[in-house]
Design a protein around this nucleic acid. Sequence first.
DNA 1: GCGAAAAGTTACCAGCAGTAAGTAACGGGG
DNA 2: CCCCGTTACTTACTGCTGGTAACTTTTCGC
Lengths: 208, 208
Amino acid sequence: MEQTARMSESISRRPGRPLGGQLVVDREHVLDAAERVIRRDGAGSSLEAVAVEAGVTKPIVYDRVGGRADLADALAERLSDRMVLATRTALAGETLSQTGLTRFIEANLRTVADHRELFLYVTGGSTEQTALGRLSLAERSTTPLTKTLAVWRSGIQQDPGVAEAWAFGIVGMLQMVSQWWITQKELSAAEVAGQISELLWNGLPGRT
Amino acid sequence: MEQTARMSESISRRPGRPLGGQLVVDREHVLDAAERVIRRDGAGSSLEAVAVEAGVTKPIVYDRVGGRADLADALAERLSDRMVLATRTALAGETLSQTGLTRFIEANLRTVADHRELFLYVTGGSTEQTALGRLSLAERSTTPLTKTLAVWRSGIQQDPGVAEAWAFGIVGMLQMVSQWWITQKELSAAEVAGQISELLWNGLPGRT
DNA sequence: GCGAAAAGTTACCAGCAGTAAGTAACGGGG
DNA sequence: CCCCGTTACTTACTGCTGGTAACTTTTCGC
């Protein structure tokens, strides 16, 4: 039968080592492709689709980043880094205050909105070890937050032992609020950020 | 070839309408079976396994409860009901206070621990419309909570407009804290409940 | 009695994660 | 200069799962 590689140019590479002897894509390229696919096709994207977008085949994806759980983990790390960056520039190292907290939350919401499908992919997970997977994702956010909280609480003569539980609680709160916020259109990011900040800063009864 | 139905008794039903003219299982039986399977095999259980456990075949599961998303939704409703019940008996209608809030959170944690795999199944979802699915689960908890918060805030002369955002935030916080708590063994439910209650009641800086 | 409706099961399809086996180019030693 | 082990791919498969179409048997109304 005729050669299968005839459509346009190198849409389909021949088997065997490519000419040039170099890797055709590296880990970062695969992750970039994954982000593009997820942004385009939604959180239910398959590994096959990622491979096609990257211009390679599935085993290459497995070699570069691993299985589906590893992919989600790597993307979670990227998203988490972007969030940390966004909030860091929003805060610019000032000391913690209610308005600073509000800006922190708002920056968080805007980053989630910017990477809507990626956020859903990462927090959605697949199944089974999703639980631990999502925890490891959350830990990437909570670990630095725990330290920050512990230091800050010590600085204002309050018990720092609550830091870890609080960090998980805050991350969970932000994740759920983000999920809710990106699926409704009534409230703006600033409004929601202000409300959540009010709760976290002043507590349920509010300051009298 | 010989009859396939020969092992033990009615392990495998013959095709066709059963002899009594009655439904062999109803929706509740399927949901019970699903809970048993999930408790035994973990959050990654398949619909096939649920069908086998219920003593029927897959299309029956689809007829009684629908697809995987519907199953998760129905189980979420059950779990949510149990949580509401547990917290309601723990609170016994007293007015909201910090110690009451602590009991509320502790009851929540204990209920999650009692239904560990079910909780993971329900919050884990599969993919794709997981986002909306999880939101609909959360909404089942947030809707009553929103009302409670709005009424309570009005009663203490505070703005009730924050109720919805707060409800989602609190539910998210509890979900994440639960997930973290059931995978560690250092802190007791009472300790964690006290810490989270402290945060929700007094806020990050604490009462001075 | 008899045919339509009801209540099942069997048998299939499509899609996906993951892997084994095959193939072509490179590169260093004889 | 050629050959063989290594490298870097692809093809082709398995196994499983969600979901559905088609078939089979009993019941029940007329």
